[in-house]
Design a protein around this nucleic acid. Structure first.
Lengths: 302, 302
DNA sequence: CGAATACGTAAGCTGAACTGATGCTTGACG
DNA sequence: CGTCAAGCATCAGTTCAGCTTACGTATTCG
């Protein structure tokens, strides 16, 4: 019978890529991880990983074993959820992660409601980019997280995670009011200066991709992750940028917002099997309620 | 994250009933099992078991946790199966359990075929009553086993085990040729002396139940588990008994066999998730082939 | 009302597993 | 092409989880 802790290391290795990263995620030394994975292979009697340059990659058998590990870990997570439910009385710590604009708009009312309804719950919020969410959930640095993707840059679901849809919003092109646009809004700003997110973030990726679809490479002038900053820059005539509906506060002067066909889809994610955990379920419910009460119309899937 | 070894102890406790039995099954001392279960409860933060007289019983939460444990263990079993398949070349030990009459008729040809086709396979056969099979499979004393039940005494499937149907046979009432029977064969022997299996075995239970359905309690004279012995006793005029089709060798003189509506159903059982194990799959295939080649007509389910 | 059975606790010991040090290979950079 | 850093493996040393043994307590049975 294979050891679950070792299977977990193997699974994390398949996502993180290096033994050093796995070690850091588990607060072990790389040596310990290396020894445990060696022991796993010895027990399995098959090669599960092989050196590839100065890193290691999983063999096909290793990858197959990872898929089994996901099932095992999801079942253990579900077991955890049932004992938590049996413990009764929502208590303990829930660590929630979200992207910046969601913290202000969605998470805040949900937090207030959760704190009011379940005073024994310790709520911790972390602001982080959606691309970092899967690792954070897997490594148990987060329990619940808001993630999003764009229809033109879909993110394939992670086998270790489960999620439910929350929002579906329009993405706007923010341009200075002096600009006159005709026809396809994207094509009319092909020569403008662009304000995009930091490289490596999803916002950055989606802007580049949208421009690519419109047939040009944007001239990147400014990098800004905070959408209110983006709007301020646009109002100051510093360029154009993409802004999702949720990030729009009160209407800003000097900025024209042109709706695009691009849509941003927000989901609530958690570890496979954790959906039955009472604290997770309560958080999901509170977030859905907050989304429902959001000003303006947002459609959410089931 | 709950410990799998401890969950396994909890699951085994739910089947075996006492900590002492669990300890014996794992070749631990009762003290070790007690300590581990205490640690599991401490970790869970809920009562999982409670004293009931001088034994312990599971709380509803404990039972719920057992169901999760079954899932976890099945997934680990499946993981084991894939590494075994990746190891390639059928090898290792397969411990097969069967009830006595199956050993002679079904298992023998299957063993010969398996040994011929996969010489690296170490085959071990154990003869045991079907009622002992689930525990033996769970405790890993067996890997594959033939079990049966009767339509009038159905055995509910064990959540820790998986199985495929193999045979479906007629059960005969064996009576001396001197006896003249008319009408319902069971009612005609209500006053006869009965030859039944040892108490605690399935054969014993089914005979009593069949008589009960016919409206009487049998006068038990002899106990015999070997059906050839039963037939010899019947031929010697010592009484009557139930004999399934598979147990009938060459026709015996002095014995009349009256077919009843009772049917005995034989299945191949193994641990949940072990179906993908190459050695288990090969054993199942060999047993099904042996059943197909059996003289006489036997119908097997899918 | 002993005797046996079953579970729990305390003390002690063994081995699994982690840390830290060392060495080897690979890839990047000047 | 030499140097350096990154990354993994191995070895020795140490710690702690978990086992056994011994003993105590509660319950059932004869």
């Amino acid at each position: 019978m294979l050891d679950v802790r070792r299977l977990r290391l193997l699974r994390d290795l398949s996502h993180l890529g290096t033994i050093a990263a796995v070690a850091e995620a588990h607060t072990y030394t790389p040596s310990a991880v290396s020894q445990q994975l060696a022991a796993l292979q010895r027990q399995a009697g098959v090669a599960l990983l092989e050196r590839a340059g100065r890193r290691v990659t999983l063999t096909p058998t290793g990858e197959a074993l990872v898929r089994h590990a996901e099932v095992v870990l999801a079942a253990l997570e579900a077991a955890d959820a049932t004992v938590a439910a049996a413990r009764g009385g929502l208590s303990g710590t829930v660590r929630i992660g979200a992207y910046p604009s969601a913290v202000r708009t969605l998470l805040l009312p949900a937090l207030v409601a959760l704190g009011r309804d379940h005073p024994a719950l310790d709520l911790m919020v972390t602001e982080l980019d959606p691309v970092a969410v899967p690792d954070a959930l897997r490594d148990r640095r987060l329990d619940v997280a808001l993630v999003h993707d764009y229809d033109i840059v879909p993110v394939e679901p992670d086998p270790a995670l489960d999620s439910v849809p929350l929002l579906d919003e329009t993405v706007y092109l923010a341009v200075g009011t002096d600009r006159h646009h005709t026809g396809d809004p994207m094509r009319s700003v092909r020569d403008a200066d662009w304000i995009v997110g930091s490289p490596g973030t999803l916002c950055h990726a989606v802007t580049l991709h949208a421009c690519e679809l419109a047939g040009f490479r944007p001239t990147v002038r400014h990098h800004a992750d905070d959408f209110t900053a983006v709007l301020a820059l646009v109002a100051a005539g510093q360029g154009v940028g993409l802004v999702p509906q949720l990030a729009l506060g009160r209407p800003s002067t000097g900025v024209a917002l042109v709706p695009l066909t691009i849509r941003r889809r927000t989901r609530i994610a958690y570890r496979q099997g954790a959906g039955g955990h009472p604290a997770v379920a309560a958080s999901v419910a509170a977030l859905r309620a907050a989304a429902r009460d959001l000003p303006g119309e947002h459609s959410a899937g089931s």
